[in-house]
């Protein structure tokens, strides 16, 4: 018994240390964001004397921050909306016709991408997008849609295969054609998987850095939040307070989503990882 309780204490000590290690950068970010430059240069670790909000205001006004935030929102929102339209409809056709050679081939053709890291195609892809004149928001949205298909189709096909065929057959008997039975009967049944796909893709697209770097870096008006942070790297080495205020602001949307939809996020990223 005594040995068990000693083990338990060790358990708590390690976990508590872990919590501190995770919390410290967050604490430091909020702390520094709320201090003035003078306060920070006097003592980096001290608590703020008053709740100074000037850094947030300066980031928002000076750095065109709202534009970048808006760009990130639009790109993430439109991409995910398109993913949720195209991926399930493709997967439905594949899952219900896997005996046919074309659909079987297409399934492999899309999901083989699981084994090909993005860095392998990024150079020729950028060349292609330049030639097509698509180094803009529309271009990057199409790319997110394309690359998300790889994983989304894999997950959706697996899920649709488990749905019994009777469901559609009774819809056909009621006079539904294929598109109608898909929209009214099948698509609503996919909700749990759709939630997973939405969570995975929102996190990926919002946080992605490489694709915006390749496609949107040329014009500042196209920048996303991540790109903005990267481009301000050298400036941040000198203006810590501003830097931390912008780190805080750019992470806030994801943190709010995390706090409100934790259950979906946990299942979303676990399932996503399992089939990566």
């Amino acid at each position: 018994m005594k040995k068990g309780s000693r083990f338990k204490t060790l358990n708590y000590v390690v976990l508590f240390t872990g919590v501190l290690i995770i919390a410290y950068p967050v604490y430091l970010t909020i702390l520094t964001a709320l201090k003035t430059t003078q306060e920070t240069s006097k003592n980096f670790f001290s608590l703020p004397q008053s709740l100074y909000l000037g850094n947030f205001i300066e980031v928002i006004h000076k750095a065109n921050f709202p534009t970048f935030l808006f760009n990130s929102f639009i790109i993430t929102g439109v991409s995910v909306a398109l993913i949720v339209i195209i991926a399930p409809i493709t997967s439905y056709a594949i899952a219900r016709n896997l005996k046919n050679r074309y659909f079987k081939f297409l399934f492999g053709y899309i999901t083989i991408g699981i084994f090909i890291p993005f860095q392998v195609i990024m150079i020729p892809l950028t060349k292609l997008m330049t030639r097509l004149g698509m180094l803009n928001q529309a271009g990057i949205i199409i790319l997110y849609l394309t690359f998300s298909l790889i994983q989304s189709v894999f997950l959706y096909v697996g899920y649709i295969k488990t749905l019994p065929l009777d469901i559609e057959e009774s819809a056909y008997l009621d006079g539904c054609n294929i598109p109608k039975s898909y929209f009214y009967v099948i698509f609503p049944l996919l909700k749990p998987m759709t939630a997973t796909i939405v969570v995975m893709n929102v996190l990926w697209i919002w946080n992605d850095f490489l694709l915006p770097l390749l496609i949107l870096n040329r014009s500042q008006s196209y920048w996303t939040i991540q790109l903005f942070q990267y481009n301000f790297k050298s400036q941040y080495m000198f203006d810590y307070n501003l830097a931390f205020a912008s780190f805080f602001l750019s992470t806030l949307p994801v943190v709010l989503i995390y706090m409100s939809m934790q259950k979906h996020i946990v299942s979303g990223i676990t399932q996503g990882a399992v089939k990566h």
Binding site: P25, L28, T29, T32, L203, W206, N207, D208, F209, I225, Q226, Q229, Y230, K233, Y236, M237, Y240, A243, F244, F247, S250, T251, V254, V255, I257, Y258, I265, I269
Partner: peptide, 15 residues
């Protein structure tokens, strides 16, 4: 896991 790699990298730069 939910944070962007760029932001995390930047914060740790300062640390």
């Amino acid at each position: 896991t939910i944070l962007s790699l760029i932001t995390v990298g930047m914060v740790f730069n300062q640390i």
